[in-house]
Nucleic acid binder design. Structure first.
Lengths: 209, 209
DNA sequence: ACAGAGTCATTTACGAGTAAAACACATGCT
DNA sequence: AGCATGTGTTTTACTCGTAAATGACTCTGT
């Protein structure tokens, strides 16, 4: 749309030539090294190709982290691109939808600062998005009576209707996108990602005590 | 740095109030609903809180996809932020490092177009990054003799040295960031992400055949 | 009551990415 | 040969996000 980022390739990239360098049946040394972390890596994604390339030119390095971080980044890029599709139809960018969704799911008014914290974005960015959304009649603002610095933002009826219309489409789309994994795999993946996220938020995320 | 994006909160956000609404020992209905996909969701990350909020206001929707996609997005945002730290010390942004790393791991010259495809970025973005990197003496370009439209880009000695110096730091840092998960968890996560990525690339990624 | 410090939100200046147009060149067809 | 078409790369116009400065206001201590 407009603000789509597309940050992706951690160390990710696709190998133009040797896509399946080592056959899966008789793994060569490079595949074995990559497989050390992947477990039984039957399928080959682009990150696996990158890992193989690194092993070829720098056999000494430990590519383990890349197999997680590279894939997380690449998956995020592809998923965001995919996710944007239903939103575009509603004339929304994902950051805009995040604002609306945050208001919808909390169920009450929020200040711009709260929205910024909820959506992990800067206050300035929220200011601009709220301006857009207000102009489109999707949110309303009202000043605080006690503290006249703060504003309170809420969804308009139109905004609420829009979220309620788009959300199911969005989730249906997402379900389809994830359907390559069966239920058990999805469950395990969600669980592991949850644990990783929990760890990351503890060590990197706001140590805001 | 300068262009750090920080796109994150798919539907992610942190609950300001009820962080641990349902006790882990005696999960209430909301936790049970969330747990339906997470499996045994012992730990609570921000996405779990968001899912609980959605269940509270829209009990009818299937939040399953959010537990994967929301977490992937949020993990990617946190990891990228973390990953940038060692790169900043070298005066590089991640996209710049991606270009250098791509040249390093392929081991040979690449054209701007190839670099764009390898790093999943637009040609225009690559043009600008190459301009920067060339000015800093990290890459060199030479024109193709056959086809004078195309350029060939390669690392200078300085560029190669920089990559070789930064890469181990980067991987060490990444290893530390992931150390919250034990070896088996990392292996399983890498494997599941690999499968997801394989599926996504098949269905969303370049159907360039 | 008032100065100073802190907080919430917005504005400003700027950098980076994108899409689309523009170039520069090659290639195929007649 | 000569022109249309296609491809690789760069340029242009524009958007969005950020960091830092600013404005507006509250709160605390004296």
């Amino acid at each position: 749309m407009t603000a789509g980022n597309g940050r992706a390739a951690a160390t990710g990239g696709e190998d133009a030539d040797g896509r399946e360098a080592a056959g899966p049946g008789a793994p060569g040394p490079a595949a074995a090294a990559a497989g050390a972390v992947v477990g039984r890596g039957r399928v080959s994604d682009t990150v696996a190709g990158v890992v193989r390339q690194w092993h070829a030119v720098r056999p000494d390095i430990d590519t383990g982290p890349m197999e997680i971080i590279g894939r997380v980044n690449r998956c995020a890029a592809l998923l965001q691109q995919a996710e944007d599709a239903p939103l575009r139809r509603a004339g929304l960018t994902r950051p805009e939808f995040d604002v609306l969704g945050t208001l919808r799911r909390t169920g009450h008014e929020l200040t711009p600062g709260e929205i910024a914290r909820e959506t992990f974005s800067s206050g300035a960015a929220v200011t601009k998005r709220l301006k857009q959304l207000t102009e489109r009649g999707l949110v309303e603002r009202r000043g605080d009576t006690r503290d006249r610095r703060v504003a309170h933002v809420r969804l308009t009826d139109a905004g609420r209707d829009l979220v309620d219309a788009v959300l199911p489409e969005q989730l249906t789309y997402e379900t389809a996108v994830l359907s390559g994994l069966d239920g058990q795999e999805q469950s395990r993946l969600a669980s592991l990602l949850g644990e990783l996220l929990f760890q990351l938020e503890g060590r990197l995320g706001a140590p805001r005590g």
